[in-house]
Design a protein around this nucleic acid. Structure first.
Lengths: 212, 212
DNA sequence: TGTACATCAGTGAACGCGCGTTCACTGATGTAC
DNA sequence: TGTACATCAGTGAACGCGCGTTCACTGATGTAC
């Protein structure tokens, strides 16, 4: 007699095994994103790197968009604790430190940055997935809020965070491919510009506090 | 006897006619870019809108990349005079005005923004074309330099311009597609964030002047 | 203990489509003589 | 003035490729009895 429950009694892969394979596929997707320009990323390469057939990916993810967004969510969620950990204490230069962590994280894990811009620029995204992307963005903005408040900002903190977030993203996109520069030179330039940004935000917060 | 000059005597389209058709193709490319997500833009649609066969485009442009970059250069070069015209006099709120012009220009002519991000993110670009793109970027940065100097900045003006440029680009990319918002709401939010950015740059320049 | 069967992970090849680009061709016009 | 020819704008169809996704199938394993 067949089971009448929702879980099929015949499932031979238990949850751990399924999860392990899922992770392996996401690992492969990340590696391919890290290696190639994001419009060259494709399912065949991901499957090959994961050591499986392309068709098998579709037993774990309904389509490419889901896979990409799951991969992004898994990786990008590590950024939030990293920010959280360093905002603990108010200190001079905190904003610069946070800016550097943000920039460093997204240049060292270029795959997340590529995925992020992919979603920002592409057409329609599944509603649920969009909401999860928004949740990540809000978490990052929340961290920035905390940072600005620790540094003494009181007025329109969210506005500052939005501006800060946009400015850092802009650095990553604008100076990503400066011709004739090595990877290190690009990173160095980004950090330079990030310091300028951090400095003027710092200055803004300070002078706001002084006006009070 | 055949002509021994470089210009073929048989050319039936004179330079004006050729240029007119070239412009018409670029017009069509712009219109398609304005209408569709940039990864849906294709040569067939451009040809159809221009009222010609796809094959004819290749008599005017060697390939798609050249067409796109020429289109971008033609359109984006109008931004520089627009900025130039409004930086004439130093006045309070100048930075905000310039930020608004930049944002407005690239939201009202969304096609240029799409092309710009296209080039920033895609793989290899022809060297000559890259140099022309860089020239445009430098012109914009030069305008920002002028603006900051008029407002009293003296130290590391180019650094400010780089940061300002990145921040404005970041606004355009980050807040482009906020789900459930109308086009007007998106634009309004962008202008709000741009005002925050402008304000803190203004503050930075002023306090730099005061420290002197 | 053995056998027929159900279930499911996994596969390689194929489907279908979109798209950049090229090909072979047409037809109009100017030139040589 | 007429005719053969060269030149070039322009075309529709085809080529070739990449890629997301699906299909028909295999084989291993657990179950029913």
């Amino acid at each position: 007699m067949l089971s009448d429950g929702k879980k099929n009694v015949f499932a031979r892969l238990n949850d751990d095994q399924r999860q392990a394979r899922r992770d392996a596929i996401i690992d492969a997707a990340e590696a391919i994103f890290a290696e190639k320009p994001f419009n060259k990323v494709n399912m065949r390469d991901i499957a090959r790197l994961a050591g499986i057939s392309p068709a098998l990916i579709y037993r774990y993810f309904p389509n490419q968009q889901h896979l990409f967004i799951e991969a992004f969510l898994r990786g990008a969620s590590d950024l939030v604790p990293a920010l959280d950990g360093c905002i603990g204490t108010a200190e001079p230069g905190l904003i610069e430190k946070v800016a550097r962590i943000f920039i460093t994280y997204l240049t060292e894990h270029e795959q997340y940055f590529k995925m992020m811009t992919h979603f920002m620029l592409e057409g329609s995204i599944n509603e649920d997935l969009q909401e999860r992307l928004n949740a990540i963005e809000r978490s990052v903005l929340d961290q920035f809020d905390r940072m600005f408040m620790k540094m003494g900002a009181r007025k329109d903190v969210r506005g500052l965070s939005h501006a800060f977030f946009a400015a850092l993203n802009g650095i990553l996109i604008t100076y990503r491919r400066h011709p004739g520069r090595t990877v290190d030179e690009v990173r160095e330039h980004m950090e330079l510009v990030a310091r300028v940004i951090a400095r003027i935000f710092e200055n803004e917060v300070q002078s706001e506090a002084m006006r009070k």
